[in-house]
Write a protein that binds this DNA or RNA. Structure first.
Lengths: 121, 121
DNA sequence: GGACGTTGTATCTGTCTGTGCATAACCGCC
DNA sequence: GGCGGTTATGCACAGACAGATACAACGTCC
C-alpha cells in the first residue's frame, strides 16, 4: 500500500558535485538515444541544459562518464563510458535499496497524506 | 573512506507533496525554537518562506504536523504535533538507513571524483 | 489599555535558472 | 564539395523563486 512516489535521491559531494535523479535520467537517455541532443529532446530539456549537465559530470569525474564526438556518421554522438554505466548502475541500485528497505519509513511518512481527487492541473 | 556528503532525500508523493531535507530541517528548527519565525531566523530563510513550507505541509497532511498559535505569552508560537514528530523521525531514520546500507553504492559513485583543492569561492 | 512578539497575508523587487536562438566546428556520406 | 546532424559555445530573454517589506490580527502580561 505504499503510495506511488518518485524519489529524488540527490547526493551533494564535498567536491561540489551534486548527483541526483536528473543526471541519472540523463545518462540513461544518452545511453538510449546515443546523443546528447537526442537525450535532451526525449527529456524535453534544452540541449544547452543537457550539455551543461554532461560537462558538469565530465569535469567532476575522472575518468569521465560520457564520451562525445562530433562529425561523422549521423553527425556525431555520445555514449556512456564504462565508468558512466557503473555510476548509473550504482545510483539505480541505491534507489531500489531505499524503496525496498525503507518501505516502513516511507509508509510512516505518507500514512497521513490527504488523499486528493485526481485534479487535472 | 566514504567522502563526506550531504544527501537530500526528496520524496515526491503522488498527492503533490514533496518532502525532503529542507522541510525536515525546518520541522526540527521549529521544534527547537518553538516558533516559525525563530526557525526561519535560525535557518537564515525568510519568514515568508518558512511559513509557506509549514502551510504546505499542514494542508497536505491530516492531521497536521505543526500546531501554530498567535498571541499570548511570547506573542505566540508553533510546535510539532505528535504526527509531526513522527514524520520527522521516519525521515531521519530513512536518511540513516540510506547512508548505512547504501554505503557501497555511494562509494561506487564517488570513487572517481576529481579531488579539488579547497577553493574558496 | 498598551506593549510585545508572533502568526498570517499581500505586494514589490531582485536574482537565479533554464530556454531560445544564433553560430562555428566537425566529419561521414552522397 | 555540399548536406546533414551533432557537439560546443555565447548571449539575450522570460519565468519562477526567494527575499524584503509592510501591515493587520491575536492574546498574554504588565
Amino acid at each position: 500500500m505504499t503510495p506511488d512516489l518518485k524519489l529524488n535521491l540527490r547526493l551533494h559531494f564535498a567536491q561540489g558535485l551534486t548527483f541526483g535523479r536528473g543526471k541519472a535520467d540523463l545518462l540513461e537517455a544518452i545511453d538510449r538515444t546515443g546523443s546528447i541532443s537526442g537525450a535532451g529532446r526525449e527529456m524535453k530539456m534544452s540541449y544547452r541544459r543537457a550539455w551543461n549537465l554532461v560537462e558538469e559530470m565530465n569535469t567532476a569525474f575522472a575518468p569521465p562518464l560520457i564520451d562525445a564526438s562530433r562529425g561523422g556518421s549521423g553527425g556525431g554522438g555520445a555514449a556512456l563510458t564504462d565508468r558512466g554505466r557503473e555510476v548509473l548502475a550504482h545510483y539505480r541500485a541505491l534507489e531500489r535499496l531505499v524503496v525496498q528497505t525503507g518501505a516502513v519509513h516511507i509508509g510512516g511518512i505518507s500514512g497521513g497524506l490527504v488523499s486528493v481527487m485526481h485534479d487535472e492541473k
